[in-house]
Amino acid sequence: MSTKGAISNFIEKYYLHFNAAALVDAAKGYEDQLNSGAKMLVSLAGAMSTAELGKIFAEMIRKDKVQIISCTGANLEEDIMNLVAHSHYERVPNYRDLTPQEEWDLLERGLNRVTDTCIPEEEAFRRLQKHIVKIWKDAEANGERYFPHEFMYKLLLSGVLEEYYEIDIKDSWMYAAAEKNLPIICPGWEDSTMGNIFASYVLKGELKASTMKSGIEYMTFLADWYTNNSEKGIGFFQIGGGIAGDFPICVVPMLYQDMERTDTPFWSYFCQISDSTTSYGSYSGAVPNEKITWGKLDINTPKFIIESDATIVAPLIFAYLLDM
């Protein structure tokens, strides 16, 4: 029996109502899932890697609190960018006051802004490009094809980036995932920086598009993984909205309806952290019960929605799960 630490005790004592209570309920529900032998998918949208969620998410991975990840291409690469170029990032606390000219000046300096944090193009993007392109080309020369995350795993585990490390490697969630060869789903990878770079090499005739495995292949991989791992249930912990969540959650109705595997279990737990409000046609702001009508969640699936900033909420839930 684990003993909870100071952070867990604090939220249990003081987080008693509204979104605060939903946070505690969701954390306990997540823990119940794992204790029952269920597995958990965590989806990462937004700029979680640039927010340095890896500081605690990497430990979640090491402690087997997550069994599969779905993330945007940006989160896939930006964790590694932070690993190799951290000291070159710039914070802009007064970002709300920036004029269009000041935004242009940041661009001229090679600084791409994500809210209050600027990612340095030369030290982050190009430093990765130099090495990942070689890995892409070597794979193609050998007649090999891989998923985007598999190429990133090869990059990390090859050791070619070690000379650039600027943070403790234990704070990189991608490195923790690579060490475990954790399955990752990365839908819509093409709109990431590395996806754009890969497309540019295809346009120049230096790479074939087929060297990179596709989104359809990600879906079929996920379908097989879900089928083989759902005996005791699989939960769905969604940070943010968008494709990182919508893509993987659809595997259940696809298996049940399109494959006619009517014994496919629904997701056994659902939690979403989002600041999107419910509105006409909004997916990210849709209440969990709407997913029942799409065959994603069961009537009895434990459902939680925490309408707050994920950079505040997710670390607290993870701290609870890690007995901090």
Score class of each variant (00 low, 15 high):
122 E>G: 04
122 E>V: 14
123 E>D: 08
123 E>L: 12
123 E>A: 11
126 R>N: 13
129 Q>A: 15
131 H>V: 07
131 H>G: 01
133 V>R: 09
135 I>W: 02
135 I>T: 07
138 D>M: 09
138 D>T: 13
138 D>R: 13
138 D>I: 11
139 A>H: 06
141 A>D: 12
141 A>Y: 02
145 R>G: 03
146 Y>T: 02
147 F>D: 00
151 F>Q: 00
151 F>R: 00
151 F>T: 00
153 Y>V: 08
153 Y>R: 12
155 L>H: 06
158 S>C: 08
158 S>I: 13
158 S>N: 07
159 G>M: 12
160 V>E: 05
161 L>A: 07
162 E>R: 14
162 E>Q: 13
164 Y>D: 08
164 Y>C: 05
166 E>L: 03
166 E>A: 08
167 I>M: 07
168 D>E: 13
168 D>Y: 04
170 K>N: 14
171 D>N: 15
173 W>Q: 04
173 W>P: 00
174 M>A: 14
174 M>G: 09
176 A>E: 00
176 A>G: 07
176 A>C: 12
178 A>L: 04
180 K>F: 09
180 K>C: 09
181 N>S: 15
181 N>Y: 12
182 L>Q: 02
188 G>R: 03
190 E>A: 12
190 E>G: 14
190 E>H: 14
191 D>M: 11
193 T>R: 07
196 N>L: 15
196 N>D: 10
197 I>C: 04
198 F>C: 05
198 F>M: 02
199 A>M: 14
201 Y>V: 02
203 L>C: 09
203 L>S: 09
205 G>M: 06
205 G>A: 06
205 G>V: 04
206 E>A: 06
207 L>R: 00
209 A>V: 13
213 K>I: 03
214 S>P: 02
214 S>Y: 05
214 S>D: 01
214 S>G: 10
216 I>W: 13
217 E>T: 07
221 F>D: 11
222 L>K: 00
223 A>W: 05
223 A>R: 09
225 W>C: 01
229 N>A: 10
231 E>W: 10
231 E>D: 06
232 K>R: 14
234 I>Y: 05
235 G>S: 03
235 G>H: 04
236 F>V: 06
237 F>A: 11
238 Q>D: 13
243 I>N: 07
244 A>P: 06
245 G>P: 06
245 G>T: 09
246 D>V: 12
246 D>P: 06
246 D>R: 13
246 D>E: 07
248 P>Y: 05
249 I>M: 15
249 I>G: 01
